[in-house]
Computed example of a mutant assay.
Amino acid sequence: MTTVVVAGNPKPASRTLDAATRLATELTGRPPDAVVDVITLGPGLLGWGDERVSDAVRTVASADLVVVASPTFKATYTGVLKLFLDQFATAEGLRGVVAVPLMLGAGPSHALAPDLLLKPVLVELGASTPAPGLYLRDSSYATDGTIGEYVERWGPALRVLAARAAADRAPRD
């Protein structure tokens, strides 16, 4: 099973990236196979055809499980993440990928943002999002146990579906 983390924070090496990596690691029992820290792709996100951006898109599209993370900006996900998601050329760009929307924020007022705002975009791109999105408080995600609780509740189903996606992608003799 191939696992990828996508972090759409305007700051490189952010808490968003850390939280997404922690979630992916707890879901699978190992670090993600690849990490896309979107902001490091630079100005190539503003157009089409940039080789680094295209490579990142292919990496995400070939994943079995992807954690897509953003801080909450103006009650939604970041423009940087939107620029990256716009690079998927078709509505089937994430077909066969199991996706987990993850957002961080300062308080509980935006707790529904992963499901109301990020999840629909991932579904529109063809991803399966069988579990609720996860909202974490940016000041306590590393210590409050929320990631562990989420993994305990939703991890078994996500792992089964991601393994099935991996099997579906495997070459057949």
Results as ranks from 00 to 15, higher is better:
residue 59 T to H: 06
residue 169 R to C: 09
residue 106 A to F: 10
residue 131 A to Y: 04
residue 40 T to Y: 01
residue 12 P to T: 11
residue 26 E to V: 00
residue 142 A to T: 07
residue 27 L to F: 13
residue 66 V to S: 10
residue 82 K to P: 05
residue 89 A to G: 13
residue 101 P to Y: 00
residue 170 A to P: 01
residue 105 G to S: 08
residue 66 V to Q: 01
residue 52 R to I: 02
residue 124 E to F: 15
residue 64 D to E: 12
residue 69 A to D: 02
residue 162 A to P: 10
residue 86 D to R: 11
residue 124 E to Q: 12
residue 92 E to L: 07
residue 101 P to S: 10
residue 94 L to G: 04
residue 33 D to Q: 10
residue 21 T to G: 09
residue 65 L to T: 01
residue 101 P to H: 02
residue 153 R to M: 05
residue 134 L to E: 01
residue 40 T to N: 04
residue 144 D to E: 07
residue 163 A to F: 02
residue 4 V to C: 03
residue 134 L to V: 06
residue 53 V to I: 13
residue 107 G to W: 06
residue 1 M to P: 14
residue 85 L to P: 09
residue 14 S to L: 11
residue 49 G to P: 02
residue 158 L to E: 03
residue 92 E to S: 14
residue 105 G to R: 00
residue 149 E to V: 05
residue 160 V to D: 10
residue 56 A to Y: 05
residue 28 T to H: 02
residue 103 M to R: 10
residue 114 P to Y: 08
residue 24 A to M: 05
residue 19 A to D: 02
residue 83 L to T: 14
residue 86 D to S: 06
residue 166 A to K: 08
residue 73 F to E: 08
residue 148 G to F: 06
residue 92 E to D: 12
residue 3 T to N: 04
residue 54 S to N: 15
residue 20 A to P: 01
residue 157 A to K: 14
residue 123 V to E: 15
residue 52 R to E: 09
residue 121 V to L: 15
residue 115 D to I: 08
residue 99 A to I: 12
residue 157 A to G: 15
residue 44 G to A: 06
residue 96 G to R: 07
residue 170 A to R: 12
residue 41 L to P: 00
residue 56 A to H: 00
residue 143 T to P: 00
residue 48 W to G: 14
residue 102 L to H: 03
residue 140 S to K: 07
residue 116 L to I: 02
residue 61 A to T: 00
residue 152 E to I: 03
residue 48 W to H: 15
residue 117 L to S: 11
residue 78 T to K: 06
residue 67 V to E: 06
residue 115 D to A: 08
residue 131 A to S: 14
residue 66 V to M: 10
residue 155 G to I: 06
residue 49 G to S: 11
residue 2 T to S: 12
residue 88 F to N: 03
residue 11 K to V: 08
residue 140 S to Y: 05
residue 170 A to W: 09
residue 34 A to N: 10
residue 9 N to P: 03
residue 30 R to H: 14
residue 75 A to M: 09
residue 73 F to A: 11
residue 85 L to E: 04
residue 101 P to C: 09
residue 61 A to H: 03
residue 157 A to E: 15
residue 131 A to K: 03
residue 20 A to L: 05
residue 143 T to C: 04
residue 121 V to P: 03
residue 110 H to S: 09
residue 112 L to D: 10
residue 148 G to K: 12
residue 47 G to E: 07
residue 156 P to C: 05
residue 151 V to M: 13
residue 130 P to N: 03
residue 135 Y to L: 10
residue 144 D to V: 09
residue 69 A to M: 05
residue 118 L to Y: 05
residue 140 S to N: 05
residue 120 P to M: 08
residue 159 R to K: 03
residue 18 D to S: 12
residue 95 R to W: 00
residue 150 Y to H: 13
residue 5 V to M: 12
residue 164 R to P: 00
residue 129 T to I: 06
residue 34 A to T: 03
residue 135 Y to M: 04
residue 60 V to G: 07
residue 33 D to L: 02
residue 26 E to S: 12
residue 104 L to I: 08
residue 33 D to N: 11
residue 98 V to G: 05
residue 62 S to L: 01
residue 62 S to V: 04
residue 126 G to H: 11
residue 114 P to R: 13
residue 165 A to Q: 01
residue 100 V to I: 14
residue 114 P to V: 06
residue 69 A to E: 02
residue 46 L to D: 14
residue 26 E to W: 03
residue 82 K to S: 06
residue 153 R to V: 07
